[in-house]
Structures are given as C-alpha cells and as structure tokens.
C-alpha cells in the first residue's frame, strides 16, 4: 500500500524550547496508525504541523503527496481533525456547530451526519458551554467524521468519553479502516491503541524512538514467569539460560520469578527437570512496553531514512 502521510526530518522549535526534532515516519493508506507518547513528548506539535497550524523549521510533511503547508487547502478537503484541546464557540448549540462546519466543508451527507449524531447520542439542542466534557468531545468527533474524510487526524480523541462512547468510537475507527480510510491517532491510552491500531510510533522528548507494527512491539516483550516447585531449586540454573534477563528466588528457593526476553523454550525445558507445582505467565501489556521505553534514558531516535529499514539501539529492529 502506498504511503498517504509522509513525514521526513520534521523539526519544530518554540524559540529556545524543544518541539520536535528530525521526526520521520510514513503512514500507509488505509491503516490505523497510533502515535504514542507521554505529555509534552511532541505528539500535538507533530499533528499541528500536519494540519499547517504550525510552520516547520525544517523537514517536510506531506499528505496524499501534497505538501502540508503549501497545499493546505487541498489537504484539508481530505482530512477530518480532532484537536487535543478542542475549543468551539460556547454560544452555539451542538447542532449549530455541526451545521456551520458542514457549510465550511461545502456541505456533507446529512443522513450520515444524523446517523453519527444518533450513534454518539448527542443532544444537538444544547449550547456548547452547557455540554459536559464528554459531550463536547462528541461534537468534535462528529465534525471530524461527518464528511467521510480520507484521512482522520485525531489528537487524543477519546479523552472524556464514557466507555460506551469509547466503544462507539472504536467501531467508527474500525469502519473507517474497513472503508480504506486512514486514521492517525495520537494517544497515551495504550489500550485504545492496542484495540484499534495496526502500527504505532512512539515519540519521546521530541524524537521518534520506536516505529513498528503493533504485534512487533508485543514481540519485544519481556515475559515474567513464576514457577513454583515441590522442593527448592537452584536459581542459578535459570540465570544462564538464553533470553533470561532476571531471576528472583521466592519462598526459600522453592519458587522463582523469571523475566524473559524473547522465547521461553529454554526456561520451560530447564523447569521440566524439577517437580513443578504451578506455572504462571504474565503477558506484558503495551503499557509495560511503553513504560519500558520511557524509563530508558539511552533510547536513541530512529535515524531518518526510508521507512521499513530502521534500526533502533543497534539491537532492536523496528520495522514498518
């Protein structure tokens, strides 16, 4: 599939302060791309550069082959956007806001718009200032989806939504993906990304530190296995095995907690030599992976270059 979003060496500074530095990535048409990072990492800056709300200091950002700054109007015909901190006219009703943005987009399919309003269970007669945080978010989400955009750029879109509406949002994203539309979704809620995204990029302190498929990220997981034995066993026997990162003896040596990087085959075979009472394996969540990336200070940025052939830290392969 061809790339619909191409970002190359994109750099933005706010005076002397960091924005983003040499960020490069591509998003294929039809995929749901998760853009992860903690607060202040540079997610919103990247998105606002894509939306031509900010002017890049260097580098380039293209959507559908068009330069985000020079061809911003053409690009915005293709885009639906949810800002991180949406602000709308407080004195208009939800219905008026949607009508206004529909007009600014040259008209939308009203039947589809009404369907979205019903799906999100939005009362369009209330003024924006009277809405709860979640209902404000619904208005913004509907305006982003209502013209069936080819690309959806969503900056922390579900913040403030209740679980039911989050579910509805997930299905709207899946429908968009099934229709071949692209979703660029920034978040720090990993379960959301895990559920909806096919690929993710992780940004930290303005630099992209990881880019890969969602399953690929899971592959670099660090299992934790706790094995209880009928009698004490030598913990050292596990420490030397391939993939074992850490061994912790428990219960006076009759149990061990083992952290494993990669395949668990060697550990299972070694454990089988002793009388095993129980074995518990903990699957790492994306949360764990995510936290791991952030607690490491030596995480180097992904070098610029063609996506798909990127190496990270000289040992972990990140693939597009």
């Amino acid at each position: 599939m061809s790339s619909i979003i191409q970002v190359e060496n994109l750099t933005k500074r706010y005076g002397g302060k960091r924005g983003i530095d040499q960020v490069s990535f591509e998003v294929a048409e039809g995929e749901v791309f998760g853009f992860l990072g903690p607060n202040g990492a540079g997610k919103t800056t990247t998105i606002r550069l894509l939306m031509a709300l900010l002017h890049a200091d260097s580098g380039s950002a293209r959507i559908a082959g068009l330069d985000c700054w020079d061809k911003t109007i053409e690009i915005k015909r293709l885009i639906g956007y949810v800002p991180g901190e949406p602000s709308l006219d407080r004195n208009l009703t939800g219905g008026q806001i949607l009508e206004y943005f529909a007009n600014l987009r040259g008209g939308v399919d009203r039947a589809y718009l009404k369907k979205l309003i019903e799906r999100m269970d939005l009362d369009t007669s209330r003024k924006f200032r009277q809405y709860s945080t979640g209902n404000k978010r619904k208005v913004v989400l509907i305006q982003a989806f209502m013209h069936r955009p080819r690309v959806l750029i969503l900056d922390e879109p579900t913040s403030g939504l209740d679980p039911l509406n989050q579910q509805e949002f997930d299905s709207m994203v899946k429908e968009a993906r099934d229709e071949g539309r692209t979703v660029f979704l920034s978040s720090h809620v990993l379960s959301e990304v895990e559920k909806t995204c096919t690929r993710v990029g992780i940004i930290r302190e303005g630099r992209l530190v990881k880019l890969g498929g969602i399953h690929e990220l899971m592959d670099i997981k660090r299992y934790e296995i706790t094995i209880a034995f009928a009698k004490p066993v030598p913990a050292d026997a596990f420490a030397k095995l391939e993939g074992v990162v850490e061994v912790e003896p428990l219960s006076n040596g009759s149990a061990v907690r083992i952290a494993i990087q990669g395949a668990a085959d060697a550990v299972i075979k070694e454990a089988a030599q002793y009388p095993v009472v129980s074995l518990t394996s903990y699957e790492p969540s994306l949360e764990d992976i995510f936290l791991r990336y952030y607690e490491r200070d030596d995480t180097a940025p992904i070098p610029s270059g063609p996506a798909g052939h990127l190496t990270m830290n000289g040992e972990e392969a990140a693939r597009v």
Binding site: A52, L53, Y81, L88, V140, Q143
Partner: peptide, 10 residues
C-alpha cells in the same frame, strides 16, 4: 483556540 478547528476545514 477557537480558530483551530475552523482552520482544519478547507
């Protein structure tokens, strides 16, 4: 921030 979403339209 009132201009942000308006400027996301064409």
């Amino acid at each position: 921030g009132l201009l942000e979403i308006v400027l996301s339209t064409p």
